[in-house]
């Protein structure tokens, strides 16, 4: 009789093990790797709707949406590049609390070969190659199935939307909508930092993105003046170029 106690566990082992999808198996020598982004405005976590962020010259802003595409994520080993993922959309639109902000937003994990790397690179925005495609090229739900400017033939690489108080009177009625696209505003960023990927061990690389550094030049003090401009929906506007030019400073790898 006592051997039945061994047979029933066997039954359950069979029950679960036979259902395992082969796709779930990680090939030997690989690991899952994802990129996690935490957004901030200066020292404060970036949350939607409630929090007020002091802006330049007595102005203040509140957030509604902050999102961006990452393209052509590659692990670097000297001059060698290992492709990790083609495209990912990171959106902080549902980050409402500090707790949400602390979790950050992650890419879908990709399979990476185990090994030691010297760094990682990715494009901020949609790479020119992918930007030549259109949403119908993708299944619904794919990151590139939306956020497209039909008439400008470009994806919207980056969106920042919110409200501004221009007069320090608590009135946040001025709405801000800055959308940036176009190949000229695509930026490739490289982070030289040793990365070790162990066989079968999931890894999350941590990045911080500071919106303040996109809107305000920390060296010159130049900033987007919301009293002058509250929207940009173009590939070539000065404000779009200004923001694109500050991305490299705004993103740090932990």
């Amino acid at each position: 009789m006592k051997y039945l106690f061994f047979l029933f566990p066997l039954a359950f082992v069979l029950l679960f093990s036979t259902c395992k999808n082969s796709d779930d198996e990680m090939m030997p020598g690989n690991a899952n790797l994802a990129l996690n982004f935490k957004a901030s405005y200066g020292e404060a976590p970036l949350t939607m709707f409630e929090r007020e962020y002091a802006y330049e010259d007595g102005m203040a802003i509140k957030m509604q949406l902050f999102q961006f595409y990452l393209s052509e994520v590659r692990l670097l080993n000297g001059s060698e590049a290992t492709p990790l993922m083609d495209i990912s959309l990171i959106s902080f639109g549902d980050v409402y609390t500090d707790e949400d902000a602390a979790k950050g937003k992650s890419t879908t994990p990709a399979t990476a070969p185990a090994g030691t790397y010297t760094g990682i690179e990715f494009g901020f925005g949609v790479s020119p190659e992918l930007n030549a495609t259109i949403p119908p090229n993708y299944a619904l739900g794919h990151p590139l199935s939306e956020n497209y400017w039909e008439a400008a033939s470009s994806y919207i690489f980056f969106k920042f939307e919110g409200n501004a108080d221009l007069e320090s009177n608590g009135d946040f009625s001025e709405k801000l909508t800055f959308h940036v696209g176009g190949n000229d505003n695509y930026r490739k960023l490289t982070f030289d930092k040793p990365i070790t990927i162990e066989d079968g061990k999931d890894l999350m690389l941590q990045f911080n993105i500071d919106l303040q550094k996109i809107l305000v030049d920390s060296n010159t003090g130049e900033y987007l003046d919301f009293r002058q401009v509250t929207q940009s929906h173009s590939n070539s506007s000065p404000s779009a170029t200004f923001m694109a030019n500050h991305l490299a400073e705004a993103i740090e790898m932990e």
């Binding site: 400017w149 008439a151 401009v229 929207q231 929906h233 404000s239």
Partner: peptide, 20 residues
């Protein structure tokens, strides 16, 4: 289509929500 708008132009911007 909002992408035809310039920064200073008042614009309906219908395609923001009714795109694709």
């Amino acid at each position: 289509y909002v992408e035809f708008a310039t920064n200073t132009l008042d614009h309906p911007g219908c395609s923001h929500c009714h795109g694709s």
